[in-house]
Lab assay of single mutants.
Amino acid sequence: RLHIEVEGTELMKKLVEEAKRRNLNVRAKVENGKWIIEID
């Protein structure tokens, strides 16, 4: 499991799109103003 903290929506969208393209499980949520992304 990969755990990433990202500031900025554009970067988050790119990460999520790339993960979906590779058929990975992606969860994204906002915590303290940062995107928290978990990829399995």
Rank of each mutant, 00 (worst) to 15 (best):
R1Y: 14
R1F: 14
R1S: 12
R1T: 13
R1K: 12
R1A: 11
R1D: 07
R1M: 13
R1P: 10
L2S: 05
L2M: 08
L2A: 06
L2F: 13
L2P: 05
L2N: 05
H3L: 14
H3S: 12
H3G: 05
H3I: 15
H3M: 13
H3E: 10
H3A: 09
I4V: 07
I4G: 04
I4H: 04
I4M: 08
E5H: 09
E5I: 15
E5R: 10
E5V: 15
E5A: 08
V6H: 04
V6Y: 06
V6M: 06
V6A: 06
E7R: 12
E7P: 06
E7Q: 11
E7A: 11
E7L: 14
E7V: 13
G8M: 13
G8V: 10
G8T: 15
G8H: 12
T9K: 09
T9L: 14
T9W: 15
T9N: 10
T9Y: 15
T9F: 15
T9M: 13
T9V: 13
E10T: 07
E10Q: 09
E10R: 10
E10P: 05
E10G: 08
L11Y: 10
L11Q: 11
L11G: 05
L11I: 11
L11F: 12
L11D: 08
M12N: 01
M12Q: 02
M12I: 07
M12K: 02
M12G: 03
K13L: 14
K13D: 04
K13M: 14
K14E: 07
K14G: 04
K14H: 08
K14L: 13
K14T: 06
K14D: 04
K14M: 12
K14A: 11
L15D: 00
L15G: 01
L15Q: 01
L15Y: 08
L15R: 01
V16K: 04
V16L: 11
V16H: 03
V16C: 12
V16P: 00
V16G: 02
V16I: 11
V16A: 03
V16D: 01
E17Y: 12
E17P: 01
E17T: 09
E17V: 06
E17K: 11
E17S: 09
E17Q: 11
E18S: 09
E18N: 07
E18P: 00
E18Q: 11
E18Y: 14
E18W: 15
E18T: 06
E18K: 07
E18G: 05
E18H: 10
E18L: 15
A19C: 14
A19S: 03
A19D: 00
A19H: 02
K20F: 10
K20D: 02
R21A: 09
R21T: 04
R21M: 09
R21E: 03
R21Q: 07
R21K: 08
R21W: 05
R21S: 07
R21H: 05
R21D: 02
R21N: 04
R22H: 09
R22I: 05
R22S: 04
R22L: 13
R22M: 12
R22G: 02
N23P: 01
N23G: 15
N23H: 12
N23W: 09
N23V: 03
N23E: 04
N23D: 03
N23Q: 07
L24K: 02
L24A: 02
L24G: 00
L24M: 07
L24H: 02
N25F: 10
N25S: 11
N25I: 13
N25E: 05
N25V: 13
V26T: 01
V26W: 12
V26G: 01
V26R: 02
V26M: 04
R27W: 09
R27A: 05
R27N: 06
R27H: 08
R27F: 07
R27G: 01
R27T: 13
R27S: 10
A28Q: 04
A28L: 14
A28N: 03
K29C: 09
K29E: 05
K29Q: 06
K29L: 07
V30N: 14
V30F: 15
V30D: 05
V30Q: 15
V30H: 15
V30T: 09
V30A: 12
V30P: 07
V30C: 15
E31C: 15
E31W: 07
E31L: 13
E31N: 06
E31Y: 09
E31F: 10
N32Q: 05
N32Y: 05
N32T: 02
N32G: 10
N32H: 06
N32W: 03
N32L: 04
N32S: 05
N32I: 02
N32K: 05
N32F: 05
G33Y: 02
G33V: 00
G33W: 04
G33T: 02
G33L: 04
K34F: 09
K34P: 00
K34H: 10
K34T: 06
K34Y: 08
K34V: 11
W35G: 00
W35I: 06
W35K: 00
W35D: 00
W35Q: 00
I36L: 05
I36M: 04
I36Y: 06
I36Q: 02
I36E: 03
I37K: 00
I37W: 02
I37R: 00
I37T: 01
I37A: 00
E38G: 01
E38I: 14
E38V: 13
E38K: 06
I39N: 01
I39H: 01
I39E: 02
I39L: 06
I39R: 01
D40K: 06
D40S: 13
D40E: 13
D40R: 08
D40Y: 15
D40N: 09
D40G: 11
